[in-house]
Amino acid sequence: MSDIYDILTPEILDQAVFHKSRRSDNSGSCVEVAENLAATHGVVLVKDTKQPSRPPFAFTVAEWEAFIGGVRDGEFDL
């Protein structure tokens, strides 16, 4: 099984369309998500807006869906 990061060529990263989380505020502490590559490349990208020079984190669609399901179920509530 190949590493998900192996497919993240500059050409694919250029196709990513990031949007801010609806829960983000104006403090600059937010994340941006690119889900548009899920259907074509099987990957969801997440980046930290405070560190724009860092590459995005990459998740498989299954990993992303599990994370979102956990958020909705309150698994990460403090």
Rank of each mutant, 00 (worst) to 15 (best):
T60E: 05
A66N: 11
D48S: 04
F18R: 07
T9F: 08
N36R: 11
C30S: 15
M1S: 14
E11I: 08
D48T: 07
S2P: 07
G70A: 12
E75M: 08
G74P: 00
H41N: 06
L8E: 06
L13C: 08
E11Y: 01
H19T: 15
E65W: 00
G69I: 03
T49W: 11
N36L: 13
A34L: 12
G69A: 14
A58P: 06
F67R: 03
G28D: 06
F18E: 07
S21F: 00
N26R: 12
V17M: 04
M1V: 13
W64T: 12
N26D: 15
A66H: 07
V44N: 02
E63Q: 14
D73F: 06
D73G: 08
F57T: 09
P55I: 11
V43Q: 02
G28Y: 00
E32G: 10
A58E: 03
V17I: 15
S21C: 07
T49K: 10
E75N: 03
A58S: 09
H41E: 03
T9K: 04
L13D: 09
A16Y: 05
L13G: 08
E75K: 10
R22N: 12
D25H: 06
K47N: 05
G70L: 12
L78V: 12
E11D: 12
N26A: 15
V31S: 06
D77H: 09
K20S: 13
N26P: 02
L37R: 14
V33H: 03
F18A: 06
Q51G: 00
D14S: 14
F67E: 01
L13Q: 13
D6W: 00
P56D: 15
